[in-house]
């Protein structure tokens, strides 16, 4: 069963078009060197899982991609737009790139529907009716259209995270970033969020996922990146990565995470 799905996922087309290209990127927090010499190219349709011990800089890396964090050296190009301190470029990239956070970060004072329509109305200048239709479409896709008029505080964690995914999708992004989307969830809710992410992958969305869900990585990813101490230590296709890790750090990490 799992094998069959994996195969299905593997069949997804990865085009030659480059979605994200990071060259020689370095970042410091004060004097602390958090990201070292990051080189990464992501093609359109790729599904990349980034894993690594905590503090290895994986969250920082994807937060640099939509300029939530500033990098000091090197270049990041997203969809052909070079990320600079120019506010116009940042706005452009952010409206192309969706992001899902570990702690959902839904707006507690707005209903689920308002959470989903806020950015389309203000950023995309879409009429309210149309924005609501889009929002309902995506809420149906994450299977919670009946919650549209509730407030985030009334939903379970898993439901909130699915709303957060729908909220990002309403901006019709071409790339989705996931920052440990299931880490704050109870075990029984993880599956519903992962299912949502899998169906997203099957539609060909370009995805960068920081996660420790190795089952998800095997099933969906076409590339797994292992980071440690601010650098990319190893990257490979999931089969090779899990079955035949090359670096000692990777082996140690995998034995710890899959060991039990």
């Amino acid at each position: 069963m799992a094998k069959a799905q994996t195969a299905a996922a593997k069949k997804l087309e990865v085009s030659d078009e480059i979605a994200i290209s990071i060259t020689n990127m370095n970042k410091w927090y004060g004097a602390f060197h958090v990201l070292k010499e990051i080189d990464l190219t992501v093609n359109r349709g790729e599904r990349i899982v980034i894993c690594g011990p905590s503090g290895s800089g994986k969250s920082t890396l994807i937060r640099c991609i939509n300029a939530l964090e500033e990098h000091q050296q090197g270049s990041i190009t997203v969809d052909g737009t070079l990320l600079s301190s120019d506010i116009k470029n940042i706005d452009k990239i952010r409206s192309e790139v969706g992001m899902v956070f570990q702690h959902f970060n839904l707006f507690p004072h707005l209903t689920i529907l308002e959470n989903c329509t806020l950015a389309p109305i203000w950023v995309r200048k879409i009429p309210k009716k149309e924005a609501e239709d889009t929002a309902m479409h995506f809420l149906e896709k994450v299977k919670i259209p009946e919650q549209a008029d509730k407030y985030p505080g009334q939903l379970s964690g898993g439901q909130q995270q699915r709303v957060a995914i729908a909220r990002s999708l309403c901006m019709r992004p071409r790339i989705m970033l996931f920052d440990e989307p299931t880490s704050a969830l109870d075990p029984e809710m993880i599956k519903e969020v992962l299912d949502t992410m899998i169906s997203l992958a099957e539609e060909g969305m370009t995805m960068l996922c920081v996660t420790h869900e190795m089952g998800f990585a095997r099933q969906v990813a076409n590339r797994v990146i292992f980071m440690d101490a601010g650098q990319i230590v190893e990257q490979n296709e999931p089969e090779a990565f899990f079955n035949n890790p090359q670096s000692d750090r990777t082996k140690l990490f995998l034995s710890q995470i899959l060991g039990h």
Partner: peptide
Amino acid sequence: SKGQTEAAASLGL
């Protein structure tokens, strides 16, 4: 929380 501004910023607001 900082997460609120970050979420809003990542939506392009």
